[in-house]
Design a binder for these strands. Structure first.
Lengths: 336, 336
DNA sequence: GTTTTCTAATTAAACGTTTCATTTTTAAGG
DNA sequence: CCTTAAAAATGAAACGTTTAATTAGAAAAC
């Protein structure tokens, strides 16, 4: 409908609009941006002509002039990790609400790639970065300069933070199992180079210790496949319940149990952490600790955009609550 | 390490490098881009100085001058659909290989959002678009103009295409079940407004009909939850096997069966389609048709970049083969 | 009627590149 | 040693915006 009238093939520029409207380029710019002082009649006329020509500002030019690109970068460890797509989705949507676009990057768990990605984004001139670091290492320290950065789920002294109250999550899980009557409970934690990950299991373990119910505390990589030692511990009858620091590992544990003909939850109860979508599809559904990842995505964008607007404001640190989601993997311990 | 020496706080520009190297801006530009004619010594010297100052080109400026942004847009229906993250990941990586960045957008299955997203990307000046349309409707027809677009898994007369040989996939699935000895087989297909989706099930159904083994052919939305009629048909004993047009629906069928205490694969065999990561984590693992989504992502980028480089080249249409992945949901029909 | 103030509009510079057209330098040819 | 050609380097315009500085015009103040 709003095709270019003077159809020269190219997209119309400010100059074209100015020419067609019979005013100067500056006036068009002012009118379009509600800036400067433009008379009511002229403004209307300019807007009209611009619409008729189908004028769209050239954002590259705008970016060069203003130094702002209207784009932000999202740096994630791994898009195929089921935790992240929902986050990415909400970041993209929240950004679009504010007319920002999002460069998404996934670093495959490599620090090298993380740095390369950040560098590429900075060079692109993004106005800010939302960064979910691989682990606790601050690999971008020397790269970001004064660029607004929002860090997710990690500590970082230099940037705005959005964190998760993992302590309370870890406690909730442990308490739920205690409440169900379990007294021999194993804890499996995820990656040890991530504080937030260690903390989850640590708080679980602490609660269990207090009830004298901690059978053992092991580690496993963030993976569906259990390491042999862990698989053995899970299935050797030493525990009636598991507190697992990540859903993916929890699903792996369920799998290991089933392969040895043990039933969940009749023989072993399990609670995970993350509430990844897989969990809801399992049978029975995995009981877990939910992280409000959608809200986090939205809030990440909002916080970042505020920081972009007001770089000098004092550092923000948001903490999100988690909730326990009961599905089907918790039952009383087997009686025998 | 490579900080700006003349540390004025701002990032060094071509001019700064030129000044520091004692040559003209043009020479620096030529040297950096291996263009024009620059003497060997000068070239080395310029490169040296540029490195020392930590010069990075301002891509907005470059974009304005050249009309190319070095960015592409990726438009997907829904990032939380487990089919897409792997695609997105590979698109992002392949693009980075060629120094392109990717704007990722997810349209939540709305045509409105699809158009809005495309418009935003075009305005941003992306050099091309990789588009996985929601259904067969060509909603962007009037927007893309001469912009290079690569369409995934759909037909479109105007653009380069990357498709999947779904016919052969549908046949493979049906034949596998026949080979296992099943003679009462149900077919569940996904969204009906997508040709590629209809086709999967249609080819399955055709094979089954030929063997006089098609019990029924039903539809279900792309969802884990089965519509009542479908759930009933799945569990009423009318079939010993299911050919399902999408893994997510297949997992829903397994769930429905389990809730009625039917076993997979002992009572009912199931083959899905897509090979989404969930399937591998189920117990038993879901047998399915694998779509080489990683390669598709890479090839999508390659094809798009070739089109960007050579807009006039004749239209390309790539078809990817699928493969059958045997896991644990296929067994001979129950004997009774 | 002249000066002042305010508003509306314009001119032109600037942002950081690329690249065409031009000048300067070097090398080759006689 | 002079002329010519080739190579190397430069100057300046252009890309599409924003915005500071300026001018023109109209209304207000004296």
């Amino acid at each position: 409908m709003t095709k270019d009238e003077t159809s020269g093939g190219k997209r119309p520029t400010l100059k074209d609009v100015a020419l067609a409207a019979g005013v100067s380029v500056a006036t068009v710019s002012y009118a379009l941006n509600d800036a400067g002082s433009v008379g009511g009649d002229t403004r209307r006329h300019v807007l009209d002509v611009a619409a008729r020509l189908g004028y769209r500002p050239n954002l590259s030019a705008k970016a060069m002039r203003t130094g702002k690109t209207g784009a932000i970068g999202l740096i994630l460890p791994d898009l195929t990790n089921p935790f992240f797509p929902a986050l990415a989705q909400n970041v993209v949507h929240a950004a679009r609400e504010s007319a920002y676009s999002v460069f998404v990057t996934d670093t495959q768990g490599s620090h090298e790639a993380e740095r390369a990605a950040a560098q590429a984004l900075i060079q692109r001139g993004v106005d800010g970065l939302i960064w979910f670091p691989i682990n606790d290492e601050d690999t971008l320290a020397d790269l970001t300069g004064g660029l607004p950065v929002l860090v997710l789920d990690r500590d970082n002294p230099r940037h705005d933070l959005i964190q998760i109250d993992v302590d309370s999550g870890g406690r909730m899980a442990a308490e739920r199992l205690i409440r169900a009557g379990h007294r021999r409970i194993g804890v499996i934690s995820g990656p040890t180079d991530v504080r937030s990950s260690r903390q989850r299991s640590e708080s679980s373990a602490e609660v269990l210790r207090r009830h004298d119910a901690l059978a053992w505390h092991l580690h496993n990589a963030y993976s569906f496949d259990l390491e042999p030692a862990v698989a053995a511990a899970v299935t050797d009858g030493s525990v009636t319940a598991l507190c697992v620091g990540a859903d993916l590992i929890a699903l792996g544990a369920i799998n290991a149990l089933r392969q040895r003909a043990l039933r969940v939850p009749e023989d072993v109860s399990i609670i995970g952490f993350d509430n990844i979508p897989y969990g809801a599809l399992a049978f029975p559904g995995l009981s877990t600790i939910n992280i409000p990842v959608e809200e986090m995505g939205i809030e990440a964008v909002n916080t970042l955009l505020r920081r972009i607007a007001k770089p000098a404001e004092s550092r923000r640190r948001l903490v999100f609550d988690v909730t326990y989601v009961e599905r089907g993997t918790v039952a009383p311990p087997p009686t025998r």
